[in-house]
Structure formats: C-alpha cells, structure tokens
Amino acid sequence: MRWLFPLLIVLLAGCGKQATDTPAIGRPIPVPHTRTFSVVERNGYRVVDLHANIVTWGGAANGPEQRVRVVLVPRSIKAPALTGDLAGAVVVRTPVKRIAVNYGGSEALLSAIGAADRLVAVGGTKSYDDSIRRRVKNREIGQIGYGWHSPPNLDVLLAAKPDVFLMTIGDPAHADAMRRAIAMGIPVVPVFMANESDYLGPVQYARLFGMLT
C-alpha cells in the first residue's frame, strides 16, 4: 500500500492542471521573434496559445501570468467541441468583421494591414489616425477606455458587439475584466506586445491580427 499515497499525489496534481499548461496538438506554424504566443493548425482551424506576465504600465512584468487558448475557426466550417486540449478555450469565428481594441498600438497594426475600418470600439479619442479619431468623435465607434489607464467599459463593449476584443492589460487588476468579458460572451484575445523582448516581436501581432481578419 506504500505506493498508494504517491499515486494519489500524482492524480491530484493532474486534476489541477489546465489544458493551456500543455502545448496544443497540431502542425506548428512558425512565428519567429515572439515569446508571447504560438500557433498550431489542425482540421481546418488554428489554435493560438497566448501567455505572459502582466506588465504594469511603466513598470516591470511582475504581474501574475495570464494564459489564454484561442481557437480561430473559419465561418465556413463547424466549430470543434471544446473538450480535451480545447477545454476552456475562446472561440473566434474568422474572418472577424467587428473589432474592439483598447490600445493605440493595436489600432496602428490594424491600419497597417488594412483592417481599421472594422473597428467598432477603441480606447478613446487619442488616436494617431485622423479617420479613426473622427469616427470616435462622431460616435460611430465606441469608447471603452485605454488599457494603460483603466479596465474596459463592459457596457460599451457589449453594445459594440465585437467579433473579437484585442485587449491590452495595463495593470494586474484589469485581468479580471478579461475573464468577465469572456464570461459575457465576448471573444477576447489578449495582446502582450509590451512583453516582447525582440524588437520584431510586436510585429508578429500584425500577423496574428491578419489571421483574425
């Protein structure tokens, strides 16, 4: 019976392990220069694992690690069952037509890939893009608050009905808002550009945004 106690320890440890703690199954898609997300492809859809410690705005990456598994499923195929390594994953139907962001850098990358016209909510009126700023002031785009300043206004976010919310988390206290948004049915993809050590790391988010659009 001496073997029983160690076996129970192993079983209990396995029960607490989340699917996102292990790599998703599929064909890896090379994503050089980034350390905050990885992508695999299988059965016509893609699985994206995003993970990073939260960087407090103007500070160090000393916040708790956040892990989110996102499944990008083309609208033309049936979504997979969220079981096994997909348990607890966020499903995003692609291509997305309505996008919410809370960081100017995400706006810039969407503009660079020609998808800024899909924005339905942004942080506020401090956009460097004249057309986006004009649409915000004309109330064509909602204002949910900038990630470096506050958690998103979930009422405005719900009203905007985005297909995806590209959320930058500027404070550990804001992570709960991400989980609340997901629980309310808003697909959230966390954006960890500030955690990239390679100067080309943030550029890979343009590629990720391209996969979404």
Rank of each mutant, 00 (worst) to 15 (best):
P162F: 04
D117V: 06
G26A: 09
V188Q: 03
S131H: 05
P80V: 00
N62W: 03
D176Y: 07
S150C: 08
G210H: 08
R75D: 13
G147A: 07
A160Q: 09
Y199M: 05
Q66N: 07
I29E: 10
L166C: 03
G59Y: 06
P172L: 01
A89K: 03
Y45V: 01
V73I: 11
V70A: 04
M167R: 02
S131Y: 04
Y45R: 00
D155G: 11
Q66K: 07
S127G: 12
L12C: 04
V73R: 01
R93N: 10
N43A: 10
D117C: 07
R139D: 12
G88Q: 13
L208N: 03
D85R: 11
V73S: 01
G26K: 10
V31C: 14
H149L: 12
A121E: 07
T36M: 04
G58V: 12
S111M: 05
R135T: 10
Y45I: 02
G16H: 09
V10N: 08
P23Y: 12
S131A: 15
L86K: 06
D85V: 10
L208F: 06
M184W: 04
A112G: 08
G185R: 12
F209Y: 11
Y205P: 09
A81L: 11
R42H: 06
A194M: 14
S150R: 13
P32D: 12
G59E: 09
I182N: 11
V70Q: 05
R2G: 15
P23K: 03
V136D: 01
Y205I: 03
A173H: 12
L119R: 02
R69H: 05
G124Q: 07
S106P: 00
T168Q: 11
W148D: 12
M167C: 08
A61C: 15
A116G: 14
T213K: 02
Y45P: 03
K161D: 05
S106I: 04
T125Q: 15
L200A: 07
R179Y: 15
I186Y: 00
G170Q: 00
A183N: 09
A100Q: 01
G63E: 03
N53P: 07
V91K: 00
S127W: 09
A19Y: 01
V120M: 05
A19D: 02
L157M: 06
R2I: 10
P30I: 01
I9S: 07
W57I: 04
I54K: 12
R118E: 02
I113H: 09
D171L: 06
T20N: 11
Q18S: 11
D129Y: 14
T168F: 13
R69E: 03
N62G: 14
I186M: 03
M1P: 13
A181S: 14
